[in-house]
Amino acid sequence: MDRWQAMRIFVRVAETESFAEAARHLHMSAPAVTRAIAALEDVIGARLFVRTTRSVKMTEAGTRYFDDCRRILSDITEAEATAAGSYATPSGRLAVTASVLFGRMYVLPIMIEYLDSYPTMSGRTFFVDRPVNIVEEGIDVAVRIGHLPDSGFTAIKVGTIRRVICGSPGYFEKHGVPTVPADLKNHRIIASTGAWASPEWRFAGDQRVTIDSVLQCNTNDAAIATAAAGWGLTRVLHYQIGPALLNGDLRIVLADHEEPPLPIHLLHPEGRHAPAKVRAFVDLAISRLRGNPFLN
């Protein structure tokens, strides 16, 4: 039995919690994966997985073995890549994920600058408004907004974002400026159902206001455009209205009543063994995102 290959198979089964899914990722047949795990268990002398008709879970021995296997495989990969030079110079293809609007506004320009700096590299962006399993999707770097669960991945904080109430100067001239959250009851509200599905808006000091929106938009872009046109007030994330704030189309109100900001992190699974292509992108992204006034 090829012990290195058996470890690779074991790690992929553990990550996907599926023999069939691991087989698909490894371009193997499911029976071949099953035989490899059985042979590995025979050599080790312990069961690595508990199998049911619906799930595959690691045993206690499997969990300990998983951590060691990932370290060993990572060391092997690093040694091979170092010999080939890929840890010294960015090479290959880089895949990055982020939410749709944040990705388009802030990550895509970084990716373009990165590719201009490393002409031999190619890139792939995956901008979606849902959580992405970066291992299963083959993602090198993820930009995550919000508090992170414990994943064992490397996470680097690059900024913060605020939830803000905004409207156009023309709207405030006609309808006045709210000074406390309760004043929103007297204003025309545009709700973005994509980002704020709950009608209850929360503020600092555990203040809560149930919003009766006059218009519901399924995208933030639509809500922002409607607010900028002077039709009403909306609540979005600070970074989403950066250009509109700069050109004076929108103005933020109730800033003193905002909840604590949410963190922005760069996330990647490689840790200290990250190849040059990941390290170079992360270094550039840290510089650009931390230097952005709408992300801090």
Rank of each mutant, 00 (worst) to 15 (best):
M28Q: 06
M28C: 03
S29C: 07
S29Y: 06
S29L: 07
P31Q: 06
P31W: 04
A32W: 05
V33W: 00
R35I: 09
A38F: 08
A39C: 11
A39M: 12
A39Q: 15
L40S: 01
L40Q: 01
E41S: 05
E41V: 01
V43R: 15
I44H: 01
G45R: 07
G45L: 09
A46N: 13
A46W: 08
A46I: 08
R47L: 15
L48N: 00
L48V: 04
R54C: 06
S55P: 06
V56L: 07
V56Y: 00
K57Y: 09
K57W: 11
M58N: 07
M58F: 06
T59E: 06
T59F: 06
E60I: 08
A61G: 09
G62K: 00
G62F: 00
T63W: 09
R64D: 08
Y65E: 05
Y65K: 04
Y65A: 05
F66I: 08
D67M: 14
C69E: 00
C69S: 08
C69N: 03
R70T: 12
R71Q: 15
I72A: 14
L73N: 03
D75F: 08
I76S: 10
I76H: 14
T77Q: 15
E78W: 10
A79E: 14
A79Y: 12
A83V: 12
G85I: 11
G85S: 13
S86I: 12
A88G: 13
T89L: 12
T89K: 13
S91A: 10
S91M: 09
G92R: 11
G92Y: 12
G92C: 13
A95E: 04
A95S: 14
T97A: 02
T97N: 08
A98H: 00
S99C: 09
S99L: 09
V100L: 13
V100H: 06
V100G: 06
L101G: 00
L101H: 05
F102Y: 09
F102H: 02
G103A: 04
G103Y: 01
R104G: 04
M105D: 13
M105K: 09
Y106K: 02
L108P: 02
I110Y: 02
M111T: 05
M111S: 01
I112R: 13
E113G: 10
Y114V: 06
L115M: 11
L115D: 03
L115T: 05
D116A: 11
Y118Q: 07
Y118S: 04
P119Q: 08
P119L: 01
S122V: 13
S122Y: 11
S122R: 13
G123N: 05
R124N: 13
R124P: 07
F127A: 03
F127H: 03
V128A: 13
R130G: 08
P131R: 05
P131D: 10
P131T: 08
N133F: 08
N133L: 09
I134E: 00
I134G: 01
V135M: 10
E136F: 12
E136S: 15
E136W: 12
E137V: 11
G138K: 05
I139D: 02
I139T: 04
I139A: 01
I139Y: 03
D140K: 03
D140N: 11
V143R: 02
R144T: 12
R144N: 10
R144P: 03
I145T: 05
G146P: 01
P149W: 04
P149F: 03
P149L: 06
D150G: 07
S151K: 07
S151C: 11
T154V: 09
T154E: 14
A155Q: 04
A155N: 09
K157T: 06
K157V: 05
V158I: 05
V158S: 00
